[in-house]
Amino acid sequence: MNRESPNEYTSDFVQSAVAEYQTPLTRYAARLVGDPDRARDVVQDTFLKLMSQSPDSLNGHLAEWLFTVCRHRALDVLRKEGRMKRFEEGQAERVTADEPRVSRRMENAEIQETVLKLIDRLPPNQQEVIRLKFQNGFSYKEISRITALSVSNVGVLIHHAVHRLRDEFAAQRL
């Protein structure tokens, strides 16, 4: 009984964490490692780690802890696969093909798709902080702890990303 109680407690705790964070974590990890299957493994590992944590120690910081661990795990995967460079350089931008654009108002679904594509064209480090901020609702400080960047660095990355997106939205009349 003595052993079971804390386990049940932990298990409930992990289960509710999985229910709440599995999707956002997978989405986050998929952008770091580049594909959803690896991302699922990374998230799986993250929750495994969570099971060894005392729920009380994470009180109020669960989301931040999960994203931090998830990120570490994702970078491990990249490192092992020799793809770390992609992430560290950060500035590599996809080469874009040219295509005439038509002046028109786009449908909502299309706007959604276009905005996501514009985000996907940001340097990876900007993409990451943009998603932590606007998809997962973390503050600059929380993002700073998750990514091990300074708060001002986070601020500058978000600033540049936001302004670049603003210009691109304007150019595309989004």
């Binding site: 998929a30 594909d35 991302a39 093909a97 040219d98 295509e99 005439p100 654009r101 002046s103 595309q172």
Partner: peptide
């Protein structure tokens, strides 16, 4: 959940907005 790069082959429609350049407007 899938990044754009992973989605592109499955969904050609997703390419609708790809790579528009204002220059060509």
């Amino acid at each position: 959940i899938e990044p754009v790069s992973a989605r592109q082959h499955d969904n050609p429609a997703a390419d609708l907005g790809e790579d528009r350049k204002v220059l060509h407007f």
